[in-house]
Amino acid sequence: MAKLTKAQRKAHTEAEAILRKDRLSEDEKDFVFQNWHEGANHINGAAGAFFTPWGLAADFSIDAGGAGGRVIDLCAGIGILSYFLHHRAKWADNCPELTCVEVNPRYVEVGRKLLPEARWICADVFDWRDWQRELGGQHFDVAVSNPPFGAVRRTGNGPRYRGRQFEFHVIDIAAQLADRGAFIVPQTSAAFRYSGAQYFKRVEAGPAAEFERLTGYRMHEGAGVDTSMYKDDWKDTSIICEIACYEFDQDRARHGRVQERLNALPVPVLPYRPAEQLVLL
């Protein structure tokens, strides 16, 4: 468990008291999202469970979109990413259909209080074939996630990816479930450098490039959110991230067209040559 400061412990206790109510106001939900500490009663560091800062989650919703569509939130925590997706679309009366997947039962319990509009699934993300089957094989328009980062212990692998970075296993799974996706990843795993940098720079080597080589899915930058503004807003860590966007459906279609052209090429025919008897000396 994390070692909370006195101020953090006090705020977390207040958030727990709010969660005991039958119904929560929007102000109370906001307080819980910002002050309920993921490490107060859980070893969140070992699991890589660090909840998205409030401001970053709000900006993330710009890139994620999903209004009026089907959205799946993988490694959802208590649902802050989905919360902002819901409320950004709410004013246009075009709320997405939200599904949140989280392995920690307590996080799911809290998430159901904060975002009852979502369908909550308490399950391991690596068991995606099982819970997707229970959902009737449902496909989603958008996948979002702030997954654990780096070489965190995991229970499985993505469909194709076998590397060390947990975040790319989640992105690989998301590609099986959705047409496009938006993800929070550490800057060292991104295919570009923007946050906290003097200028935008594309990175053609590293984990994202290796993931693209293995899967065919290319990481793109989003609307231009500089996440370095929020690097000190994480609880118990400080990190610069990037918002990574993927167009899974477009990449699949592009690779399908390439394969069709390859299949249409004539197969070269080698000239016939009769077999010759080798002379043994």
Rank of each mutant, 00 (worst) to 15 (best):
A2Q: 06
K6E: 13
Q8V: 10
H12S: 05
E14F: 04
E14T: 13
A15C: 05
E16M: 15
R20E: 13
D22Y: 04
D22A: 13
R23T: 14
S25K: 08
K29G: 09
K29P: 07
F33Q: 03
N35Q: 03
W36D: 05
H37P: 01
E38D: 11
N44W: 15
G48S: 11
G48T: 14
W54P: 05
G55D: 09
A58W: 02
A58E: 05
D59A: 08
I62R: 02
G65A: 02
G68L: 05
G69Y: 03
V71E: 00
I72D: 00
I72P: 01
L74E: 00
A76Q: 01
L85D: 03
H86Q: 07
H86W: 08
R88A: 12
A89D: 01
A89K: 01
N94F: 04
C95N: 02
C95F: 00
L98T: 04
C100L: 13
C100N: 09
N104P: 04
R106T: 09
V108W: 06
E109K: 14
V110I: 15
K113L: 09
L115I: 13
E117N: 03
A118I: 15
R119W: 08
W120V: 14
I121D: 02
I121H: 05
I121F: 08
I121C: 09
D124P: 11
D127G: 08
D130A: 12
H139N: 06
H139K: 14
H139D: 03
H139R: 15
A143W: 00
V144Q: 00
V144S: 00
P148W: 07
A151D: 07
R153G: 09
R153L: 12
R154S: 11
T155E: 14
P159Y: 03
R162M: 07
R164I: 14
Q165K: 04
E167H: 05
H169I: 14
I171Q: 04
D172C: 09
I173E: 02
L177F: 05
L177H: 03
G181L: 06
G181D: 02
A182G: 08
Q187N: 01
S189F: 10
A190S: 06
F192Y: 15
Y194I: 10
G196E: 00
G196K: 00
F200P: 03
K201F: 15
G206Y: 11
G206R: 03
P207G: 06
P207V: 09
A209E: 06
E210N: 06
E210H: 05
E210M: 06
L214I: 15
L214F: 06
Y217F: 15
H220T: 13
H220F: 10
E221D: 12
A223T: 12
V225Y: 02
D226P: 06
D226V: 14
T227S: 02
Y230S: 07
K231G: 02
K231Q: 08
K231R: 13
W234T: 10
K235S: 11
K235F: 13
D236I: 15
T237N: 03
E242N: 01
A244N: 03
C245W: 02
C245L: 10
Y246T: 11
Y246W: 09
D249Q: 10
R252T: 08
A253G: 03
R254H: 06
R254I: 10
Q259K: 11
Q259I: 15
R261K: 04
N263L: 14
A264V: 14
L265N: 01
L265I: 11
P266M: 11
P266N: 08
L270M: 07
P271T: 10
P271M: 08
R273P: 08
P274G: 06
A275K: 05
L280W: 13
L281S: 07
